[in-house]
Write a protein that binds this DNA or RNA. Structure first.
Lengths: 144, 144
DNA sequence: TGATTTATATCACTGGCTTATACAGATATC
DNA sequence: GATATCTGTATAAGCCAGTGATATAAATCA
């Protein structure tokens, strides 16, 4: 009962909820967990990171990230190296195999979505395009 | 290399991906797992179901659903009952406490989203409203 | 009746998270 | 410069949530 939610916003939110559910269903059991995929994408997007730079943005504990990196390393998707300037530090980077895994995941979902988008009437398709800047901005407001 | 994805579709898909990531981040550690929440929503939306009607749509195995229902029951969020017509069957239904849990989860995310929506410029807000039918239709195409 | 099918449960295991704690390397203090 | 503290990562123990294989009980069919 704190703040009131405007009716239009409520409609948008309900739409998002349903859509989120749908998207989730579109990525069945992948080879990558949500955190694993997100971490690999980050490594791909912005290069090698210290382990300590990874866990907070992913919203997990430091031991969880240590363990995730261990699993990723075991599967050949990421690599540990050391910082010559600081012996405590572990630098994590993505491998070629890791890039492939990310691409496969992205592609699978993209193909499924593209197929659906093709089924939309032209005006709805256009409406989605028009809503992209808003989605982008919302994403920016939420992430990092 | 199967089907080609049109550039506009690729843009929409990239926007979705980012937005999905953002939404995921908006629901931190809840009291409910993704499957638990989704199952409870289903029970709330369309009433009691047999266990066997629940696991496939949720995309988990039958033992996983048995265990989930056991946990939900233990936490007072769902209830098992039997089908008088078939002694093997377990009917699962949501409790009042379960409805409350679903509502709390929905509310938490709704409030966070509403706050963000308020920060959007008017035209982007309008673009989201205009895109709702498309989101709705996409959701329908994907779910069930 | 007896065999088979169906609905759910149990078992043993793995992955992915948590908190608490250990430990090695870096930095600071005296 | 030796010692204490801080920082970055790892390890340990435990829980939750999933898996496949299998057990069990009720229903159905020959």
């Amino acid at each position: 009962m704190a703040t009131e939610i405007k009716p239009d916003d409520a409609r948008i939110i309900a739409g998002f909820e349903r859509f989120y559910e749908a998207l989730r269903r579109l990525t069945p059991r992948s080879e990558l967990s949500l955190t694993a995929a997100s971490t690999l994408r980050r490594l791909e997007r912005s290069g090698p990171h210290r382990l300590s730079e990874l866990y907070a943005p992913e919203g997990v504990s430091q031991p969880a990230m240590t363990q995730l990196v261990t699993r990723l390393e075991r599967e050949g998707l990421a690599r540990r190296s050391s910082d010559p300037a600081d012996g405590r530090v572990v630098i994590v980077s993505i491998t070629e195999e890791g890039r492939d895994a990310v691409a496969r995941r992205r592609d699978g979902r993209a193909r499924a979505l593209a197929e659906l988008l093709e089924q939309l009437p032209e005006d709805e398709h256009a409406a989605l395009l028009a809503a992209l800047p808003a989605l982008q901005r919302l994403g920016d407001l939420i992430i990092d």
